[in-house]
Design a protein around this nucleic acid. Structure first.
Lengths: 158, 158
DNA sequence: TATTGTTATACTCTATAACTATA
DNA sequence: TATAGTTATAGAGTATAACAATA
């Protein structure tokens, strides 16, 4: 039973190159890694607006849907109601959101963007578009479009 | 200036259907939503093994790379070293991982799967494959393959 | 001097139960 | 009875600083 002279008996193996074949075949693993790579750049570029990803999502929806309710925000973004409270409260304190009574439901509150929010989000959405170009920098325009379509198709509700 | 009889002056708007057009055009938003939809099902189906996504990832890498070090796990999975300690400690307590001194670096520790871990992960990886089929249920085999390829291409390091 | 692994710790994110006001 | 919004709180996830042992 010949063995290499440099290898001791029962010596544990050493990993030179990590084999990630199995994990890289999973949609969840790859989608998560892809999302995290975008969020990393997002945090840097949106720091000037002091907007976290969730703040940006909420403000974008409020700007494009004036009068949207907290419940609608929660359902759309998958946020739990208790966790939206301080989030909206923070944006209100910053003068970016105004609460107005819902005209048809006394339990609900309509959320409205202030002029400051509209101005800031015009810029922030431009930054988001630049960020999108960066995220897709290794993809052709056709691949970019295909990736967006397949991701939406994947998680779309039935 | 005629107005509908039911609309009071200055009445705030009501959102019937939420417009998500802008957010749905962003890779980060869609990748995150897609990842969360997979993780939701993952948590249900992996509960029988008591494995969170991160436990599964670590164990899968240890099984396919016996002798892998903590540092290699951190780099591969994007985990910070202090956060891996209790994670590996937990798997060791459950008799799924064994630590052995690294044969060529006295600072490092090689992580090895136990027989129990190998047995469990054969089943768990089968479950992951079923989960993958579920995640891709709305995609054709060709679309599934394309989505995996484009996601990897998107976040791949330069 | 740099790296591996670790401890302690703080901060953020997410989840659950329970309450109020209104439908 | 059900829903919108809120409070309080617990748990999970993620981050930084600092240290011992080894390279």
């Amino acid at each position: 039973m010949p063995r290499p002279a440099t290898a001791a008996r029962h010596e544990p193996p050493v990993v030179e190159q990590v084999d990630t074949t199995f994990l890289e075949g999973l949609l969840g693993y790859n989608a998560r890694r892809a999302a995290l790579s975008v969020i990393e750049v997002f945090l840097e570029r949106m720091d000037v607006y002091k907007l976290r990803p969730v703040d940006f999502s909420v403000l974008s929806l409020v700007v494009h849907n004036p009068g949207i309710t907290s419940r609608q925000l929660c359902t759309t973004l998958g946020i739990l109601p208790p966790n939206l409270v301080s989030l909206v409260g923070g944006l209100e304190k910053r003068g970016l959101i105004e609460r107005m009574p819902h005209p048809r439901d006394g339990r609900a509150t309509g959320l409205h963007p202030t002029a400051a929010a509209q101005k800031m989000m015009r810029q922030a959405e431009r930054t988001a578009a630049e960020l999108e170009a960066h995220a897709a920098r290794r993809l052709s325009p056709s691949e970019h479009k295909t990736l967006l379509r397949l991701l939406r198709k994947m998680y779309r509700d039935d």
